[in-house]
Design a protein around this nucleic acid. Sequence first.
DNA 1: CATAGATTAGAAAATAATTTTCAAAAACAA
DNA 2: TTGTTTTTGAAAATTATTTTCTAATCTATG
Lengths: 280, 280
Amino acid sequence: MPGILTAIQEQMDTMNRKEKEIAAYVLAHAQNIVHMGITELSQQSGGSTATISRFCKQFHFSGFTEFKLKLAAELALEPAAQSYQDIVAGNPLPSIVSAMEANHVRSITDTTRMLDMKQLHKAIEALKSARQIDLYGVATSGLVAQDFYQKLVRIGKRAVTFSDPHMQVTSASNLTDRDVAIGISYSGETAETIAALKCAAENGATTISLTKFGANTLTSLASISLFTSTLEEGMRRGDMASRIAQLHVIDILFVGLVSEQFDDLVPRLENSFQMVKKYR
Amino acid sequence: MPGILTAIQEQMDTMNRKEKEIAAYVLAHAQNIVHMGITELSQQSGGSTATISRFCKQFHFSGFTEFKLKLAAELALEPAAQSYQDIVAGNPLPSIVSAMEANHVRSITDTTRMLDMKQLHKAIEALKSARQIDLYGVATSGLVAQDFYQKLVRIGKRAVTFSDPHMQVTSASNLTDRDVAIGISYSGETAETIAALKCAAENGATTISLTKFGANTLTSLASISLFTSTLEEGMRRGDMASRIAQLHVIDILFVGLVSEQFDDLVPRLENSFQMVKKYR
DNA sequence: CATAGATTAGAAAATAATTTTCAAAAACAA
DNA sequence: TTGTTTTTGAAAATTATTTTCTAATCTATG
């Protein structure tokens, strides 16, 4: 049970009274909600329509209707697709391989279903007009940042990424409102990344977060929020699947960026490949 | 492929003019419709909202909203196992997203089908008993090398990776027959990576290659060959999907390594997470 | 344990989305 | 052609959702 329902469960602690009531009802009756309107749900769950509407926005849906739509898509998958599989001691190789396959595929499809086209579009527009792009991330997410950095450089976009936290903040402090900063962290609670994105925001840069689905500190600092699917609690080494999902989102951003400026950028891409071949 | 879309197709004959127009649009843009309202769809498809509402009732839905909901559920189920899709100029965002999903998923499943369990097992055994592990790769493959490096460090394996080609060769020249070198390159023809792996082989190290499927220089230098799926010819920006496939193989290697030494290594993994939390 | 300030919640107003009605246009039959 | 039926979309009616605004509740502090 990945995705939305997991995210709701995880954030139950941080909710206030009525939100918890609603969350509890949603978790218990997920299947039914798909066939309800907001009015019916408000009667059943004991919260007003206003509170439910706000509840949905907490989870970064545009509103109740989108929440319902994404939930329907998620529930449709449940019985069919393989769920995330944990890796345990002494598994024979073939079962490791198929578990890995299931986890990675699931991670990509779940993340895709969760993507908010509007946020994605806003992110691409922001990148398109950015003078300078800063990418923040440490450890695994740092590699994702570097991956995007390599891509951006190939199309001639000014971009930087640092593994050193001090350099991240230093770079962030030089951004302006014409710039974009992207903070990547699966949990959304990585101190270094938070510090850098906060600094970028304070300097007026457009801030984009890429974290697991749900509310977290990094997301709260970002003007545009992008999400990857949430892995089940207790899933060992979730960072493998989450990194694949992050790269998936990065690829979409990049292709979106390239596609909108296709005629301008593709020759540059081809050119950068040719140049590397020639001058190495 | 049962469900709504098939039903629409079947009943196309018995429809009247405008309904056919709408049906054609729905079939061609099913993915997008999920993100539209009835008003937007009416503009796009060239039928009025009234006609669309009636269209939905023809199919025994209570209305447009239910139609959209069921369609979303159906599309979620559709195992995005289509074939590789090329990205072309000015694609709308939803089709970029689904093309990306199809490519990445396909890349993982194809690579899995292609995996040779014997080679995989040999690779894991080699890594298990390695004194030192050298990882070679440039550009995108360099990030894959770094990813593996980060993982190996976490379980206390001695490993190195360099982006500088001179350092790669320097490091390779210090390897012995107790060591393992892994060369990563999608084409298998990257000069720097070839040079480094060749040097490692000459010094007696066990050599592992990770390239696209088929014969190539890097593979010919390796005592153990691992492959990722080959992308269709003409596929633009194949390095996105290939990088996902490479990481997939790396993850399998890593989990295989951890699994075989589970009781020994897992505490180390947990410990490294705790230490990072504590001392950052 | 009062009280100022902040947060939360719901009623009702405002807005947005969808469906129905109804009149006009198109298709069809004689 | 002409009368009849069917199809269509503009606009009205309905329904659903979101926002606003005020009251209630909670929280921190003297």
